[in-house]
Design a protein around this nucleic acid. Structure first.
Ligand SMILES: [Mn+2]
Ligand SMILES: [Mn+2]
Ligand SMILES: [Zn+2]
Ligand SMILES: [Zn+2]
Lengths: 174, 174
DNA sequence: TTCTCAGATGATAATTATTATCGTCCGGTA
DNA sequence: TACCGGACGATAATAATTATCATCTGAGAA
Protein backbone atom coordinates (compact mmCIF):
# COMPACT_ATOMS: atom_id res chain seq x y z
CA UNK A 1 0.00 0.00 0.00
CA UNK A 2 1.65 3.17 -1.23
CA UNK A 3 1.13 6.53 0.51
CA UNK A 4 1.96 9.88 -1.02
CA UNK A 5 1.28 13.46 -0.05
CA UNK A 6 -0.67 15.08 -2.84
CA UNK A 7 1.33 17.39 -5.05
CA UNK A 8 0.37 21.07 -4.86
CA UNK A 9 1.37 21.70 -8.45
CA UNK A 10 -1.67 19.93 -9.81
CA UNK A 11 -4.01 22.01 -7.69
CA UNK A 12 -3.95 25.07 -9.94
CA UNK A 13 -5.18 23.15 -12.98
CA UNK A 14 -7.77 21.35 -10.91
CA UNK A 15 -9.03 24.63 -9.44
CA UNK A 16 -9.26 26.23 -12.86
CA UNK A 17 -11.30 23.33 -14.13
CA UNK A 18 -13.64 23.52 -11.17
CA UNK A 19 -14.13 27.28 -11.49
CA UNK A 20 -14.92 26.93 -15.19
CA UNK A 21 -18.26 25.25 -14.63
CA UNK A 22 -19.01 26.52 -11.15
CA UNK A 23 -21.66 28.98 -12.32
CA UNK A 24 -23.36 26.31 -14.39
CA UNK A 25 -23.33 23.87 -11.47
CA UNK A 26 -24.81 26.48 -9.18
CA UNK A 27 -27.67 27.15 -11.54
CA UNK A 28 -28.18 23.43 -12.03
CA UNK A 29 -28.63 23.24 -8.26
CA UNK A 30 -31.12 26.10 -8.39
CA UNK A 31 -28.82 28.60 -6.72
CA UNK A 32 -28.15 32.13 -7.95
CA UNK A 33 -24.49 32.79 -8.67
CA UNK A 34 -23.51 35.58 -6.33
CA UNK A 35 -20.10 37.23 -6.22
CA UNK A 36 -19.75 36.02 -2.64
CA UNK A 37 -20.22 32.41 -3.66
CA UNK A 38 -17.73 32.70 -6.46
CA UNK A 39 -15.17 34.37 -4.20
CA UNK A 40 -15.62 31.76 -1.49
CA UNK A 41 -15.27 28.70 -3.73
CA UNK A 42 -12.31 30.39 -5.37
CA UNK A 43 -10.59 30.94 -2.03
CA UNK A 44 -11.37 27.37 -0.98
CA UNK A 45 -9.93 25.95 -4.20
CA UNK A 46 -6.82 28.07 -3.86
CA UNK A 47 -6.21 26.92 -0.28
CA UNK A 48 -4.21 23.76 0.26
CA UNK A 49 -4.71 23.47 3.98
CA UNK A 50 -8.41 22.82 4.53
CA UNK A 51 -9.18 26.22 5.97
CA UNK A 52 -11.74 27.25 8.58
CA UNK A 53 -14.58 29.64 7.81
CA UNK A 54 -12.71 32.53 9.38
CA UNK A 55 -9.57 31.91 7.33
CA UNK A 56 -11.58 31.86 4.13
CA UNK A 57 -13.40 35.01 5.21
CA UNK A 58 -10.09 36.81 5.71
CA UNK A 59 -8.91 35.66 2.30
CA UNK A 60 -12.14 36.70 0.57
CA UNK A 61 -12.10 40.10 2.26
CA UNK A 62 -8.83 41.00 0.56
CA UNK A 63 -10.90 41.61 -2.57
CA UNK A 64 -14.39 41.98 -1.14
CA UNK A 65 -13.94 43.70 2.23
CA UNK A 66 -17.68 43.79 2.81
CA UNK A 67 -18.47 40.06 3.06
CA UNK A 68 -19.89 38.87 6.32
CA UNK A 69 -18.45 35.98 8.29
CA UNK A 70 -21.97 34.61 8.63
CA UNK A 71 -22.22 34.48 4.86
CA UNK A 72 -19.00 32.52 4.67
CA UNK A 73 -20.33 29.99 7.17
CA UNK A 74 -23.63 29.75 5.33
CA UNK A 75 -22.01 29.49 1.92
CA UNK A 76 -19.57 26.79 2.94
CA UNK A 77 -22.45 24.68 4.22
CA UNK A 78 -24.32 25.36 1.00
CA UNK A 79 -21.32 24.31 -1.08
CA UNK A 80 -21.16 21.08 0.89
CA UNK A 81 -24.86 20.49 0.33
CA UNK A 82 -24.59 20.80 -3.45
CA UNK A 83 -21.39 18.77 -3.54
CA UNK A 84 -18.95 21.54 -4.44
CA UNK A 85 -17.03 21.14 -1.18
CA UNK A 86 -16.89 18.87 1.79
CA UNK A 87 -16.33 19.19 5.48
CA UNK A 88 -13.17 17.43 6.63
CA UNK A 89 -14.39 17.40 10.21
CA UNK A 90 -17.63 15.48 10.35
CA UNK A 91 -17.76 15.52 14.17
CA UNK A 92 -16.48 18.93 15.08
CA UNK A 93 -19.48 20.11 17.09
CA UNK A 94 -18.72 18.56 20.45
CA UNK A 95 -16.00 16.32 21.77
CA UNK A 96 -16.69 12.59 22.00
CA UNK A 97 -14.73 10.36 24.36
CA UNK A 98 -13.81 6.70 24.29
CA UNK A 99 -12.90 4.43 27.17
CA UNK A 100 -11.84 1.59 24.90
CA UNK A 101 -8.07 1.72 24.60
CA UNK A 102 -7.73 -1.31 22.34
CA UNK A 103 -6.89 -0.39 18.75
CA UNK A 104 -10.10 -0.09 16.78
CA UNK A 105 -11.96 2.12 14.33
CA UNK A 106 -15.38 3.76 14.19
CA UNK A 107 -18.58 3.81 12.22
CA UNK A 108 -20.55 7.05 12.60
CA UNK A 109 -24.21 7.61 11.77
CA UNK A 110 -24.33 10.91 9.92
CA UNK A 111 -27.87 11.55 11.17
CA UNK A 112 -27.96 10.75 14.88
CA UNK A 113 -24.18 10.72 15.35
CA UNK A 114 -24.17 7.35 17.03
CA UNK A 115 -20.61 6.03 17.04
CA UNK A 116 -19.83 2.32 17.27
CA UNK A 117 -16.55 0.48 17.45
CA UNK A 118 -15.42 -1.62 14.54
CA UNK A 119 -12.42 -3.82 14.12
CA UNK A 120 -10.95 -4.31 10.68
CA UNK A 121 -8.64 -7.27 10.65
CA UNK A 122 -5.53 -6.63 8.63
CA UNK A 123 -5.99 -2.90 8.15
CA UNK A 124 -3.60 -1.78 10.86
CA UNK A 125 -0.97 -4.28 9.83
CA UNK A 126 -1.26 -3.20 6.21
CA UNK A 127 -1.04 0.48 7.08
CA UNK A 128 1.67 0.08 9.69
CA UNK A 129 4.34 -0.44 7.06
CA UNK A 130 2.98 2.07 4.58
CA UNK A 131 2.53 5.24 6.59
CA UNK A 132 5.52 7.39 5.77
CA UNK A 133 4.21 10.87 4.99
CA UNK A 134 7.07 13.18 3.97
CA UNK A 135 7.14 16.26 6.16
CA UNK A 136 5.25 14.53 8.98
CA UNK A 137 6.15 12.16 11.81
CA UNK A 138 3.18 9.79 12.02
CA UNK A 139 1.84 8.99 15.47
CA UNK A 140 -1.19 6.90 14.61
CA UNK A 141 -4.26 6.76 12.44
CA UNK A 142 -7.97 6.15 12.58
CA UNK A 143 -10.55 5.17 10.04
CA UNK A 144 -13.99 6.70 10.26
CA UNK A 145 -16.80 5.05 8.33
CA UNK A 146 -19.69 7.38 7.62
CA UNK A 147 -23.02 5.61 7.54
CA UNK A 148 -26.73 5.75 8.32
CA UNK A 149 -27.79 3.52 11.18
CA UNK A 150 -30.86 1.30 10.87
CA UNK A 151 -32.73 3.38 13.44
CA UNK A 152 -32.36 6.50 11.35
CA UNK A 153 -32.92 4.69 8.08
CA UNK A 154 -36.33 3.48 9.24
CA UNK A 155 -37.63 6.60 10.91
CA UNK A 156 -37.29 9.23 8.22
CA UNK A 157 -36.71 11.81 10.92
CA UNK A 158 -33.39 13.42 11.69
CA UNK A 159 -32.23 13.21 15.25
CA UNK A 160 -28.91 14.91 14.61
CA UNK A 161 -27.70 18.33 13.58
CA UNK A 162 -27.95 19.92 10.19
CA UNK A 163 -24.77 18.57 8.74
CA UNK A 164 -26.02 15.24 7.54
CA UNK A 165 -25.61 16.06 3.92
CA UNK A 166 -22.34 17.91 4.16
CA UNK A 167 -19.07 16.18 3.75
CA UNK A 168 -20.29 12.73 2.88
CA UNK A 169 -21.21 11.60 -0.58
CA UNK A 170 -22.48 8.40 -2.09
CA UNK A 171 -19.12 7.33 -3.37
CA UNK A 172 -16.55 5.56 -1.26
CA UNK A 173 -14.52 7.85 0.86
CA UNK A 174 -16.52 11.11 0.55
CA UNK B 1 -9.88 -7.46 5.09
CA UNK B 2 -12.60 -8.44 7.56
CA UNK B 3 -14.74 -5.86 9.35
CA UNK B 4 -16.81 -6.53 12.43
CA UNK B 5 -18.73 -4.36 14.86
CA UNK B 6 -17.29 -4.92 18.31
CA UNK B 7 -19.40 -7.11 20.57
CA UNK B 8 -20.88 -5.34 23.58
CA UNK B 9 -20.79 -8.48 25.71
CA UNK B 10 -17.04 -8.25 26.16
CA UNK B 11 -17.27 -4.68 27.37
CA UNK B 12 -18.36 -5.56 30.90
CA UNK B 13 -15.31 -7.73 31.55
CA UNK B 14 -13.02 -5.15 29.96
CA UNK B 15 -14.53 -2.37 32.07
CA UNK B 16 -14.15 -4.42 35.27
CA UNK B 17 -10.51 -5.03 34.49
CA UNK B 18 -9.90 -1.36 33.82
CA UNK B 19 -11.64 -0.26 37.02
CA UNK B 20 -9.61 -2.72 39.05
CA UNK B 21 -6.35 -0.86 38.65
CA UNK B 22 -7.72 2.61 37.97
CA UNK B 23 -6.80 3.96 41.41
CA UNK B 24 -3.29 2.58 41.11
CA UNK B 25 -2.84 4.08 37.67
CA UNK B 26 -4.06 7.46 38.89
CA UNK B 27 -1.53 7.48 41.71
CA UNK B 28 1.17 6.32 39.34
CA UNK B 29 0.37 9.41 37.28
CA UNK B 30 0.57 11.56 40.40
CA UNK B 31 -3.15 12.26 40.56
CA UNK B 32 -5.33 11.93 43.67
CA UNK B 33 -8.18 9.47 43.29
CA UNK B 34 -11.32 11.50 43.77
CA UNK B 35 -14.84 10.09 43.76
CA UNK B 36 -15.60 12.27 40.75
CA UNK B 37 -12.78 10.74 38.74
CA UNK B 38 -13.86 7.24 39.63
CA UNK B 39 -17.47 7.99 38.73
CA UNK B 40 -16.51 9.58 35.43
CA UNK B 41 -14.23 6.78 34.23
CA UNK B 42 -16.87 4.29 35.36
CA UNK B 43 -19.56 6.03 33.32
CA UNK B 44 -17.24 6.24 30.33
CA UNK B 45 -16.39 2.55 30.52
CA UNK B 46 -20.05 1.64 30.84
CA UNK B 47 -21.02 3.69 27.79
CA UNK B 48 -20.80 2.02 24.40
CA UNK B 49 -21.54 5.08 22.34
CA UNK B 50 -18.61 7.44 22.81
CA UNK B 51 -20.49 10.01 24.87
CA UNK B 52 -20.05 13.75 25.11
CA UNK B 53 -19.12 15.49 28.34
CA UNK B 54 -22.71 16.47 29.00
CA UNK B 55 -23.99 12.91 28.55
CA UNK B 56 -21.42 11.59 30.99
CA UNK B 57 -22.28 14.37 33.41
CA UNK B 58 -25.95 13.39 33.33
CA UNK B 59 -25.03 9.76 33.91
CA UNK B 60 -22.68 10.59 36.80
CA UNK B 61 -25.27 12.85 38.42
CA UNK B 62 -27.65 9.93 38.86
CA UNK B 63 -25.45 8.90 41.78
CA UNK B 64 -23.55 12.10 42.53
CA UNK B 65 -26.00 14.91 41.80
CA UNK B 66 -23.50 17.53 42.89
CA UNK B 67 -20.81 17.09 40.20
CA UNK B 68 -20.11 20.08 38.02
CA UNK B 69 -20.14 19.93 34.25
CA UNK B 70 -16.84 21.81 34.27
CA UNK B 71 -15.33 19.00 36.33
CA UNK B 72 -16.50 16.45 33.81
CA UNK B 73 -14.86 18.42 31.00
CA UNK B 74 -11.67 18.82 33.01
CA UNK B 75 -11.59 15.21 34.10
CA UNK B 76 -12.16 13.80 30.62
CA UNK B 77 -9.23 15.83 29.34
CA UNK B 78 -7.16 14.63 32.28
CA UNK B 79 -8.07 11.01 31.58
CA UNK B 80 -6.95 11.49 27.98
CA UNK B 81 -3.70 13.03 29.15
CA UNK B 82 -2.81 10.06 31.37
CA UNK B 83 -3.93 7.56 28.75
CA UNK B 84 -7.06 6.27 30.50
CA UNK B 85 -9.34 7.56 27.73
CA UNK B 86 -9.09 9.09 24.34
CA UNK B 87 -10.93 11.68 22.32
CA UNK B 88 -12.61 10.23 19.26
CA UNK B 89 -12.88 13.66 17.69
CA UNK B 90 -9.41 15.07 17.25
CA UNK B 91 -10.64 18.06 15.23
CA UNK B 92 -13.87 19.04 16.88
CA UNK B 93 -13.01 22.64 17.70
CA UNK B 94 -13.84 24.31 14.41
CA UNK B 95 -15.04 23.09 11.05
CA UNK B 96 -12.47 22.60 8.29
CA UNK B 97 -13.47 22.59 4.62
CA UNK B 98 -12.03 20.92 1.56
CA UNK B 99 -12.42 21.92 -2.09
CA UNK B 100 -10.76 18.76 -3.34
CA UNK B 101 -13.51 16.38 -4.36
CA UNK B 102 -11.22 13.60 -5.54
CA UNK B 103 -11.12 10.63 -3.14
CA UNK B 104 -8.24 11.10 -0.75
CA UNK B 105 -7.28 10.97 2.91
CA UNK B 106 -5.65 13.33 5.39
CA UNK B 107 -2.64 13.72 7.61
CA UNK B 108 -3.18 16.07 10.54
CA UNK B 109 -0.51 17.73 12.66
CA UNK B 110 -1.70 17.35 16.25
CA UNK B 111 0.11 20.55 17.24
CA UNK B 112 -0.61 23.20 14.61
CA UNK B 113 -3.56 21.34 13.07
CA UNK B 114 -2.21 21.64 9.57
CA UNK B 115 -4.09 19.19 7.33
CA UNK B 116 -2.62 17.86 4.11
CA UNK B 117 -4.03 15.55 1.49
CA UNK B 118 -2.63 12.08 1.09
CA UNK B 119 -3.43 9.37 -1.38
CA UNK B 120 -3.03 5.76 -0.37
CA UNK B 121 -3.03 3.56 -3.39
CA UNK B 122 -4.99 0.39 -2.86
CA UNK B 123 -6.64 1.37 0.41
CA UNK B 124 -9.99 2.38 -1.01
CA UNK B 125 -10.15 -0.66 -3.26
CA UNK B 126 -9.30 -2.93 -0.36
CA UNK B 127 -11.88 -1.31 1.93
CA UNK B 128 -14.54 -1.05 -0.77
CA UNK B 129 -15.28 -4.73 -0.64
CA UNK B 130 -14.88 -5.11 3.10
CA UNK B 131 -17.10 -2.39 4.56
CA UNK B 132 -20.28 -4.14 5.62
CA UNK B 133 -21.09 -2.93 9.13
CA UNK B 134 -24.20 -4.71 10.45
CA UNK B 135 -26.78 -2.18 11.59
CA UNK B 136 -25.35 0.55 9.37
CA UNK B 137 -25.60 1.51 5.69
CA UNK B 138 -22.08 2.70 4.80
CA UNK B 139 -21.82 5.88 2.76
CA UNK B 140 -18.08 6.36 2.71
CA UNK B 141 -14.98 6.44 4.84
CA UNK B 142 -11.94 8.51 5.56
CA UNK B 143 -8.61 7.79 7.09
CA UNK B 144 -7.02 10.39 9.33
CA UNK B 145 -3.32 10.08 10.07
CA UNK B 146 -2.27 11.87 13.25
CA UNK B 147 1.25 13.25 13.05
CA UNK B 148 3.64 16.03 13.99
CA UNK B 149 4.71 18.19 11.08
CA UNK B 150 8.37 19.10 10.59
CA UNK B 151 7.67 22.74 11.39
CA UNK B 152 6.31 21.85 14.80
CA UNK B 153 8.91 19.17 15.42
CA UNK B 154 11.70 21.71 15.00
CA UNK B 155 10.27 24.64 16.90
CA UNK B 156 9.42 23.16 20.27
CA UNK B 157 6.55 25.63 20.52
CA UNK B 158 2.91 24.71 20.19
CA UNK B 159 0.90 26.72 17.75
CA UNK B 160 -2.29 24.77 18.28
CA UNK B 161 -4.78 24.16 21.05
CA UNK B 162 -4.33 22.14 24.20
CA UNK B 163 -5.43 18.82 22.87
CA UNK B 164 -2.14 17.68 21.45
CA UNK B 165 -1.71 14.94 23.98
CA UNK B 166 -5.28 13.75 24.10
CA UNK B 167 -6.54 11.13 21.77
CA UNK B 168 -3.31 10.18 20.13
CA UNK B 169 -0.85 7.74 21.52
CA UNK B 170 2.42 6.31 20.37
CA UNK B 171 0.90 3.09 19.15
CA UNK B 172 -0.67 2.68 15.74
CA UNK B 173 -4.30 3.62 15.47
CA UNK B 174 -5.55 5.60 18.40
C1' DT C 1 -33.90 47.32 -20.66
C1' DT C 2 -36.85 47.57 -16.70
C1' DC C 3 -39.71 45.17 -13.34
C1' DT C 4 -40.40 41.83 -9.80
C1' DC C 5 -39.53 38.80 -6.06
C1' DA C 6 -37.57 34.59 -3.93
C1' DG C 7 -33.79 34.04 -1.98
C1' DA C 8 -29.09 35.92 -0.51
C1' DT C 9 -26.60 39.01 2.31
C1' DG C 10 -24.91 41.96 6.30
C1' DA C 11 -25.35 43.28 10.90
C1' DT C 12 -26.07 41.57 15.03
C1' DA C 13 -28.21 38.79 18.70
C1' DA C 14 -28.54 34.23 20.50
C1' DT C 15 -26.96 29.69 21.34
C1' DT C 16 -23.72 26.00 22.30
C1' DA C 17 -19.49 24.02 23.76
C1' DT C 18 -15.53 24.75 26.17
C1' DT C 19 -12.18 27.03 29.11
C1' DA C 20 -10.74 30.34 32.79
C1' DT C 21 -11.20 32.22 37.41
C1' DC C 22 -11.41 31.92 42.12
C1' DG C 23 -12.86 30.77 46.74
C1' DT C 24 -13.53 26.46 49.18
C1' DC C 25 -12.87 21.62 49.98
C1' DC C 26 -10.54 17.22 50.45
C1' DG C 27 -7.19 13.14 49.41
C1' DG C 28 -2.80 11.73 50.74
C1' DT C 29 0.84 11.95 53.65
C1' DA C 30 3.53 12.88 57.88
C1' DT D 1 -5.12 14.54 63.37
C1' DA D 2 -3.14 18.65 60.92
C1' DC D 3 -1.33 20.30 56.73
C1' DC D 4 -0.97 21.43 51.86
C1' DG D 5 -1.37 21.32 46.90
C1' DG D 6 -4.34 20.09 43.86
C1' DA D 7 -9.36 19.27 42.72
C1' DC D 8 -14.00 20.86 42.84
C1' DG D 9 -18.26 23.80 42.20
C1' DA D 10 -20.10 27.98 40.75
C1' DT D 11 -19.92 31.13 37.52
C1' DA D 12 -17.91 34.32 34.15
C1' DA D 13 -15.61 34.53 29.83
C1' DT D 14 -14.46 33.00 25.33
C1' DA D 15 -14.96 30.87 20.74
C1' DA D 16 -17.59 28.90 17.04
C1' DT D 17 -21.72 28.58 14.94
C1' DT D 18 -26.50 29.52 14.01
C1' DA D 19 -30.76 32.43 14.08
C1' DT D 20 -33.09 36.72 13.15
C1' DC D 21 -34.49 40.26 10.36
C1' DA D 22 -34.27 44.34 7.48
C1' DT D 23 -32.36 45.22 3.09
C1' DC D 24 -30.47 44.11 -1.31
C1' DT D 25 -29.81 41.60 -5.74
C1' DG D 26 -29.53 37.84 -9.44
C1' DA D 27 -32.12 36.24 -12.96
C1' DG D 28 -36.22 35.40 -15.37
C1' DA D 29 -40.53 37.83 -17.21
C1' DA D 30 -42.46 41.54 -19.62
MN1 LIG E 1 -14.30 3.48 20.15
MN1 LIG F 1 -8.35 17.16 1.53
ZN1 LIG G 1 -28.56 7.11 13.30
ZN1 LIG H 1 2.46 21.29 12.92
Amino acid sequence: MELKVVNDSRRAAYARGRMADFAARCRAAGLPVTPQRAAIIEALLRATDHPRAETICAEVRRRHPHVSLATVHRTLETLCRIGEARKVTTLHDSARYDGNLKPHHHVVCVRCRRIRDVEIAGLDTALGGAIRAPGFKPLGWSLEIQAVCDNCANSGERAGRSSETSGVGKTPHN
